[in-house]
Write a protein that binds this DNA or RNA. Structure first.
Length: 301
DNA sequence: AGTAGCACCTGATTGC
DNA sequence: TGCAATCAGGTGCTAC
């Protein structure tokens, strides 16, 4: 479940099953799920008999903080990215045959679940054990905020749209780019968590054309996009996220309900709910992009 | 340095 | 019915 609200739904589910539980054993069923490691055996060795002390998220990146071993002097985390189709599913019966798309099975102790399976049809997701590193936010995304410990591979990711420590004028950093505003919204180094669906939704709500160069927009327009992104993601989280099919579900296999709240994404040809003009769709930067040609006028450079 | 383009995958759907 | 083309919600590497 790829964007911030969906990942947060998963994080909450994982927290209830994994916090203070022990990973007794990991069974890697598809090597590429742990492709950053030398081998699946190495991954399995690194997670075995560890306790999960916290389940944390920044944007679409999530990690499980793990209890330290005697020979380790820095904190270690299991980073889990869902990619396009990753899911975690909890099951009571460890004897149950894993699903076809199960890429890794975690056997648990001290949990209400016997196993936690990582499913991933398209295999863009991954699991990775790595050290945590101290980071200090630079730029407008988090001026003056405290040091955050992040997994090494997450160190370059900006604070996310629902992070209380995100600077209220972080959108000012968007003006440094000449790319279209949608590309900048999708750039996880500025403000993280926004993906293709919510980028289109935020731009529709803010009445800004996705291809308007970020450095051509007024601060007022950028502020509208920023606020719209936070609002739409909070609203989606409140109803359990967006899902169109069973590819995107929480740890109990349930779907979210925000699909019915979408105003732009997936509505090409349908009337704009503000002005009635049919919405348009085009491929921009390789991603399907939806907008209202009347409400969202493109600004030239 | 900043940006565009492509690669990484599987499976469902569409069109001939 | 069969098969190829297209499309899908993400990220990171490479080449301009």
């Amino acid at each position: 479940m790829p964007e911030l609200p969906e990942v947060e739904v998963v994080r909450r589910g994982l927290e209830t099953f994994l916090k203070d539980a022990t990973i007794t054993r990991a069974e890697v069923r598809r090597d590429s799920a742990v492709r950053h490691h030398f081998s699946p055996d190495e991954f399995a060795f690194l997670v075995a008999d560890r306790r999960v002390t916290a389940v944390v998220r920044r944007g679409k990146f999530m990690w499980w903080e793990l209890s330290a071993r005697d020979d380790e002097d820095t904190p270690v985390a299991l980073s889990a990215h869902l990619g396009m189709s990753g899911q975690f599913r909890a099951f009571d019966d460890a004897g149950q045959e894993p699903h076809k798309h199960c890429r890794t099975r975690f056997h648990l102790g001290g949990s209400d679940a016997a196993v936690m399976d990582f499913h991933d049809q398209r295999t863009f997701g991954y699991l990775r054990v790595e050290p945590m590193v101290p980071t200090v936010d630079g730029g407008a995304a988090g001026q003056g905020t405290p040091t955050a410990w992040l997994p090494q591979s997450v160190a370059h990711i900006g604070r996310d749209a629902l992070d209380p420590l995100l600077s209220p004028d972080a959108y000012r950093s968007w003006r440094s780019s000449s790319r279209g505003i949608k590309q900048v919204l999708l750039d996880q180094q500025f403000i993280s968590g926004v993906g293709n669906i919510y980028a289109d939704e935020a731009l529709w709500a803010a009445r800004v054309h996705p291809q308007s160069p970020a450095n051509s927009l007024s601060f007022q327009a950028l502020a509208r996009v920023f606020e719209a992104a936070r609002t739409v993601m909070a609203a989606a989280l409140a109803v359990g996220g967006t899902s169109f099919d069973d590819l995107y579900v929480n740890v109990n296999g349930e779907s979210g309900y925000f699909a019915r709240g979408l105003e732009a994404y997936g509505r090409a040809g349908e009337p704009c709910s503000r002005c009635g003009v049919p919405l348009e769709k085009a491929t921009i930067g390789g991603r399907g992009t939806h907008w209202c040609p009347r409400c969202q006028r493109r600004i030239a450079r």
